[in-house]
Simulated scan of single mutants.
Amino acid sequence: MNARTEPAEAEPVTPARPPIVRELLLVAGLFLVYKFGRQLATGHTAEAYRNAHDVWHAERWLHLPGEGTVQSLLLHGDTLTRAANTYYATVHFPATLAFLVWLYLRRPAHYVWARRVLAAVTAAALALHLAFPLAPPRMLAATGLIDTARVYGPSVYGPPRTDHLSNQFAAMPSLHFGWALMVAIGLIVATRSRWRRLWLLHPLLTLLVIVGTANHYWLDAIVAGALLGVALTLIHAPRRTATTAGRGVALPAPAKAGDQVLAGAAR
Rank of each mutant, 00 (worst) to 15 (best):
P159G: 08
Y217W: 15
T191S: 14
L204I: 14
A141R: 14
A119M: 10
S155C: 05
G178I: 00
W195N: 04
L175P: 00
G153M: 05
Y157I: 01
A142H: 12
L208H: 01
A226E: 03
P159M: 13
P137S: 06
L205H: 11
P133N: 04
V223D: 01
A184N: 04
N167I: 04
V189Y: 15
R192T: 14
T148R: 08
R138N: 11
W199S: 10
D220N: 14
R196T: 02
L145S: 09
A127M: 15
V230F: 10
T191Q: 13
M182D: 08
L187Y: 04
A190M: 09
V151H: 13
V112Y: 00
Y157E: 14
V223E: 03
Y217Q: 08
Y111H: 14
H129A: 14
A149T: 09
P133R: 07
Y217L: 10
T148N: 11
S193F: 10
R194I: 07
R150I: 01
Y217H: 14
L187S: 06
A180K: 03
P159C: 03
L181G: 01
P173Q: 08
L232K: 10
P136Q: 07
A123H: 06
L208Q: 08
R197H: 13
W179A: 07
F169L: 11
T213R: 00
L208I: 04
V230Q: 05
T122E: 04
H164K: 15
A170M: 11
Y217N: 11
V189A: 15
T148P: 09
A221R: 06
F177H: 07
D163Y: 13
L234K: 08
T206K: 03
V189S: 12
R194F: 03
Q168D: 10
I188P: 02
A135T: 10
A149N: 05
A127L: 15
T122C: 07
P137L: 07
L234C: 14
P137M: 05
L140H: 10
L232N: 07
H202I: 15
L198P: 00
W195T: 11
L208G: 14
A141E: 14
P137G: 06
A120W: 00
A131N: 15
V189W: 15
V156M: 12
L200K: 04
T206M: 12
L128E: 09
H216K: 12
T162K: 12
V223C: 09
Y152N: 05
A214Y: 04
A180E: 01
V209Y: 04
L198S: 13
F177I: 09
L228T: 00
H164A: 15
H202M: 12
T191G: 12
W199R: 02
I222R: 05
L232Q: 02
P159I: 09
D220E: 10
P203G: 02
P154K: 09
L207W: 11
A109K: 01
M172Q: 01
H164S: 12
A131R: 12
G144Q: 13
H164R: 15
